[in-house]
Amino acid sequence: MQNVETGNAYYLSKFNQSFGDKPTEVRDTEHYKDEYVTTFVEKWDQLIDWDRRWETEGNFFIEQLRVRGVKKVLDVATGTGFHSVRLLESGFDVVSADGSPAMLAKAFENAKARGHILRTVQADWRWLNRTIHEQFDAVICLGNSFTHLFNERDRRKALAEYYATLNHDGLLILDQRNYDSILDEGYNSKHKYYYCGESVVAEPEYIDSGLTRFRYFFPDGSQYHLNMFPLRKQYLRRLLHEVGFQKIETFGDFQETFKANEPDFLIHVAEKEYKNSYSEV
């Protein structure tokens, strides 16, 4: 029989975030597991607004995949399932992974409501290939998720795991908030392309070179927080090159050309291998 103290601890961990007495000092990759509590996950789709996100995003990701002949995709940051469902409905073979069991459960529920059965896997990116034993044409890591990694070793390890799970001419698509703009000029979001929910306020309440702490305020008065590492664009591009990706394009809010401080989000499209335009003799 579960004792009262243990039962209370479970209840709190399931429904209440805990950052301790000094929340801006919580800079630990493992902590994301405690941030995506059930009550937060249940509200997450209010922040995304699937219909508006579908409209503003258009077919950007689908076209990036199709033009390269991608058929099989690993969605490593499935969240509540938005991109996994979009790709399934566009004819791709999709495996949906996430580190949060609550997110995966919600994604499965969302997909089922739309007539799909997700193939879900709970996986830590740093040891992705221990859990997933398939090769893919593309890996997608979307929703600013990569910024949950707080030290360079974890970032390099995760990128290397993505690289290893790709076929020889595979593709990685990874996005992030425009932290250069946030760090250098302050936060000023158009709230248009990614987090489209009109009723949810999402804004940073603390920023320094090693942490951006976002607050999410919902219509019922509840609020939650995420602690994330503010990745600079050129730093992440360098890591992608050093891990082995040879050709990297960066888009700003789905546009190929943009001013540095304009986009809310940056999307990196990294190819594992160049396709040479010449033939070896």
Rank of each mutant, 00 (worst) to 15 (best):
L166E: 06
A113E: 15
V26F: 02
E5D: 12
S181T: 05
T29W: 09
D175K: 12
D180L: 04
L149M: 13
F108W: 14
F19C: 03
E55N: 09
K192T: 13
F258K: 03
D75W: 04
G186P: 08
W54Y: 11
S13K: 11
R237P: 02
V243F: 03
D51P: 01
A77Q: 01
G143K: 06
I140E: 06
L236W: 01
L183D: 05
G197A: 09
Y162Q: 13
E109F: 14
D124K: 05
A111P: 09
E203T: 14
F15G: 04
L87Q: 07
A260L: 06
L240I: 00
T250I: 13
Y32Q: 12
K190H: 14
L87Y: 09
R86P: 00
F229M: 11
R237D: 10
Q2T: 11
L174K: 00
I267R: 04
T24Q: 13
A102P: 03
G79C: 03
H116L: 15
L266S: 02
F92L: 10
F15S: 08
Q223T: 07
N16A: 12
I248S: 05
G197M: 00
D220C: 02
Y163S: 11
Y36G: 06
V76Q: 03
A164G: 11
T147D: 15
E280S: 13
D98A: 09
A102C: 07
L211R: 08
F146T: 05
A107P: 09
T78I: 06
H31M: 06
H268R: 11
A113C: 04
H191K: 15
P204W: 07
I48R: 04
G99A: 12
H241G: 03
G115R: 10
H191A: 15
E203L: 13
V139S: 09
D264R: 10
R126M: 01
I140K: 01
V41P: 00
I267P: 01
P23W: 00
A111K: 08
L174Q: 07
E134R: 13
C141A: 13
K259A: 15
K233Q: 08
R119F: 08
T80I: 12
Y32C: 12
G221P: 00
N144D: 15
G20D: 00
S189L: 08
Y36W: 15
F146K: 02
L226H: 12
G221A: 05
D45A: 04
G115S: 09
V201Y: 08
A77Y: 00
Y235G: 08
E42V: 02
L226N: 10
A107Y: 12
H31V: 04
L183Y: 07
S13L: 03
F92R: 04
L166S: 01
G186M: 09
E89W: 03
Q246C: 06
E271N: 10
G79E: 10
T6E: 14
N110S: 15
F19G: 01
D137M: 06
L236T: 09
Y216R: 02
R155L: 14
Y10W: 14
G7T: 07
F265K: 03
A202S: 15
P219C: 05
A164Q: 14
I132S: 08
R86Q: 14
L236S: 03
L128G: 03
A9T: 07
A123D: 02
